[in-house]
Amino acid sequence: MQLFDAESSTYTYLLWDKDTKDAILVDPVDTQVDRDIDEATKLNLSLVYGVNTHAHADHITGTHLLKQKISGLKSVIAESSGAKADLHVVAGDRIFFGSRFLSVRSTPGHTKGCTSYVADDESFVLTGDTLLIGGCGRTDFQGGSASTLFDSVQSQLFSLPPTTIVYPAHDYKGRTSSTIEKELDSNPRLGKGKTKKEFIEIMSNLNLAYPKKIDVAVPANMRCGVPDP
């Protein structure tokens, strides 16, 4: 299930095993925690993990609040992020919920800790900010690197089957998904046979504004969503 936060244009993903009803939330937003719990309750799901693709700069993760409201729920983030969590994952790990799982792929570049999560059958991939629909995350802060992001996408995402559905952490134009094939064919930054040199040139000339919430969101997210005292 794909859920949307209008303020930050963030997609949160509620995934579950249809037999055991064990479930996870990927990229939860602090202001939407009650909504997420309500959705899980309506489906009689048991939330076991709150997972983050990276330490976001535009919103505070909901993992801290989820842990306060749901006994036994554990937070998950990549070890390379340097952020606090109950469970730190590295490339090749699997996050199980019931008999289903997500495979962990390290995809740094937007931040040094960015991680993508691939479905056990490779039917979809949760790409965070590494690969967006027709774009990608910026690379000018939080240890970002255009060169690294290019390599991450080419080796870890564009190597997936062309039919794999791409579910990003954000979209600002109302789009909900893409596919690896579509991004290979039409992504103006990373597709269409773009070279690393061309990509680095594109990213160096974006001239993006400083994220409004970065000074609050990033420190909180490095603490697993615990707000500033």
Rank of each mutant, 00 (worst) to 15 (best):
residue 225 G to E: 03
residue 138 R to P: 05
residue 7 E to C: 01
residue 56 H to Q: 00
residue 108 P to F: 04
residue 82 G to C: 15
residue 31 T to Q: 15
residue 59 H to R: 08
residue 65 L to T: 06
residue 196 K to T: 09
residue 84 K to M: 13
residue 201 E to Q: 12
residue 69 K to T: 06
residue 176 T to W: 11
residue 176 T to F: 15
residue 83 A to E: 13
residue 48 V to S: 04
residue 119 A to E: 08
residue 41 T to M: 02
residue 125 V to I: 04
residue 20 T to P: 04
residue 153 V to G: 04
residue 61 T to E: 08
residue 197 K to A: 09
residue 178 S to M: 00
residue 217 A to H: 04
residue 116 S to G: 09
residue 170 H to M: 01
residue 74 K to Q: 15
residue 108 P to T: 03
residue 226 V to K: 15
residue 95 I to W: 06
residue 26 V to H: 02
residue 126 L to I: 15
residue 59 H to D: 07
residue 202 I to R: 01
residue 144 G to Y: 11
residue 224 C to N: 15
residue 210 Y to T: 06
residue 112 K to Y: 12
residue 60 I to K: 11
residue 10 T to V: 13
residue 186 S to G: 13
residue 214 I to Q: 08
residue 163 T to D: 02
residue 193 G to I: 03
residue 72 G to C: 11
residue 126 L to S: 10
residue 8 S to Q: 07
residue 74 K to G: 02
residue 132 L to P: 03
residue 36 D to Q: 14
residue 108 P to G: 02
residue 87 L to F: 10
residue 54 H to I: 11
residue 96 F to Q: 04
residue 20 T to G: 03
residue 26 V to D: 00
residue 78 A to G: 15
residue 68 Q to T: 07
residue 88 H to S: 04
residue 101 F to M: 12
residue 91 A to T: 14
residue 72 G to Y: 13
residue 133 I to D: 01
residue 53 T to H: 08
residue 187 N to E: 03
residue 12 T to N: 10
residue 221 N to H: 08
residue 10 T to W: 05
residue 26 V to A: 00
residue 10 T to H: 03
